[in-house]
């Protein structure tokens, strides 16, 4: 029944209508000079710029630089963060020793270290890599850690009672129980990694989408700034939805109601 379908998609329809309304209003505001388009740009101007940039090799170089920073920094954070989180979750003495450092790093926005990273690694790709890594690794460590810690004692007891080896206990109890937590951390960390890219490139860089935004801002090219921002929005949405999809595959054993 069409009425039913309409009802089912009400949230999406209302949301889409609101978005369209917003875009329309924006366009109209620029067209009728309610505000200077030089300051607020407009959807059509952003679209024009997007088409131009698509042809521009400089833009693709910026994209390549930013994605390199993001991907490698993020992957390195995963490669270090998950094992470290597992270790400090499993060995309490490792937690005692490393906990204070992790707490301190967690309390401070890691972008604070940007000046130091530039001092150490220069204004090239490595300082960004370092900031992305630092930003992303802490939430991954912490959520993996809390995943291991909340592994319920009763499941460990089952493994012990059946004489499971350390390895078996780890793969059959610790890992599956921790997976949802790891994904929460990964999602959060992806935001932090993207933030690292932006801040790194705003602060000191010679290339990258963030650098492009900063330069466009200095030249009052509002259209380009908006285009860059939207590119980051898009990236953020894509990364989160990829992670959500991966999470679903690991999560078949959880009742629907508990999944956020």
């Amino acid at each position: 029944m069409p009425g039913n379908a309409l009802q089912r998609y009400t949230p999406q329809l209302v949301g889409a209508a609101a978005l369209l309304g917003f875009v329309g209003f924006w366009e109209a505001a620029a067209a009728y000079k309610l505000a200077d388009p030089m300051f607020i740009s407009s959807p059509s101007r952003i679209a024009t710029v997007a088409a131009e940039m698509w042809e521009d090799p400089d833009f693709w170089r910026d994209v390549k630089v930013s994605s390199t920073e993001f991907i490698w920094g993020y992957l390195a954070a995963i490669a270090v963060g998950i094992p470290l989180g597992l270790v400090i979750g499993w060995y309490k003495r490792a937690q005692y020793a490393l906990g204070p450092f992790i707490d301190v790093l967690n309390a401070v926005p890691r972008v604070t270290f940007m000046p130091i990273m530039v001092l150490w690694f220069g204004i090239g790709i490595w300082s960004k890599f370092a900031v992305v890594f630092l930003g992303a690794v802490i939430p991954i460590i912490l959520s993996t850690y809390s995943g291991v810690r909340t592994n319920e004692a009763r499941y460990l007891r089952v493994a012990k009672s059946f004489g499971a080896s350390q390895m078996k206990t780890f793969t059959s109890i610790i890992l599956p129980g921790t997976a949802p937590y790891i994904f929460t951390g990964l999602k959060y960390a992806s935001g932090r990694a993207l933030l690292g890219v932006v801040v790194g490139e705003l602060y000191a860089a010679t290339a990258g989408v963030g650098h492009m935004i900063a330069q466009a801002g200095n030249a009052f090219e509002t259209d380009r700034v908006f285009f860059g921002v939207l590119l980051f929005t898009f990236t953020g949405l894509v990364v989160t939805s990829i992670l959500a999809r991966m999470e679903k595959r690991f999560d078949r054993w959880r009742p629907e109601g508990a999944v956020r």
């Binding site: 009763r154 499941y155 007891r157 089952v158 599956p176 054993w253």
Partner: peptide, 13 residues
């Protein structure tokens, strides 16, 4: 072998 008080089934299996 133990039959545990709370079933303690591994929820992911």
């Amino acid at each position: 072998a133990v039959v545990f008080q709370d079933a303690s089934l591994l929820p992911w299996r």
